[in-house]
Amino acid sequence: MELINLSAIWALIIGFGVMMYILMDGFDLGVGILYPFAPDEHARDVMMNSVAPIWDGNETWLVLGGAGLLAAFPLVYTILLPALYLGVFLMLAGLIFRGIAFEFRFKSRRNRHWWNRAFCWGSMVATFCQGVVVGAYIEGFEVANNVYVGGPFDWLTPFTVITGLALMAGYALLGATWTILKSEGHVQEWAYRITPKLLLLVLVGFAIISIWTPFVDDFVRERWFDHLTLFWVFPFLALVCAGLIWRSVAKRREGQPFVATMGLFLFTYLGLVASKWPYLIPPDITLWEAASAPESQLFLLLGVLFVIPVVLGYTAWSYWVFRGKVRGAGYH
């Protein structure tokens, strides 16, 4: 009984961490993806300034998730990372270049355009790889005796390329609605203009994935189509959010598009969780089979329960300090 509870608590914590990561790093990666499409250098300054103070706090969730997985569900860590080996490297390289670009773009004058490129390409590569991970996750992993036995490129399939591109569109949408919230004038107007286009891209991507998934995965098909489940509320709410984005952009609301986009991501994420539950490593390893020893889960739980409120409080405080519109090009 104790085992079940601890693993369930850990699943909640890591699920929460992943969600936080997607939402928060999502919009700052999205800003990077939109970089080449920005109307001018002033817009780029505003966009980067709007995420510069908070992006590295956003990435703490990635590291916490990685370490937490090793401690609580080691099988996820030791099967997914080998399976996604080359993709993980590309993602890390992308995140590193992008992180360094944040720091050095402002300290650089002559070579600023190089840092612009590093920021944009790093964001695109990292996002694409994360989308591919989602796709590979849906497709499942070839495992024998708790060890990954598939090939080095199993993660790269037509399906995962689609999920990679769809996530790029999704993060770009988050980035665009974030820009609406944080900017004004012609930058904001540009963000308003591109948001409906991005929304269409996202919906097309989601439609392709939703139709395709039941074909690549019998388990998902049975879960969704064998009988009507309560889970259908998630895609329904996701569509409601999409409608809200559309309407609020048309009415030129400032905060609503971003909030609705977060809702869109949340319900899609919950839908994905519902598709796979209780399997943590599709197709056949459950949450409980992937767990570490209960005493190990408990040992770390004490520390994490203490630190998560602190990190959340610090995060909230950072967003509060940097609230409001970002103006001007001057960083210093």
């Binding site: 370490a67 401690a71 860590y77 990372l81 590193i96 708790n146 060890v147 020893a293 190990s296 770390l300």
Partner: peptide, 28 residues
């Protein structure tokens, strides 16, 4: 950040065998 992934990408058997101890320690 890179170090956090090395254990899983290149030393997955080690990570799996030692996770009960190593996981909480590195997470802490």
């Amino acid at each position: 950040i890179v170090m956090a992934f090395q254990f899983g990408t290149n030393w997955s058997n080690f990570s799996q065998a030692t996770s009960n101890f190593l996981g909480p320690m590195l997470s802490y």
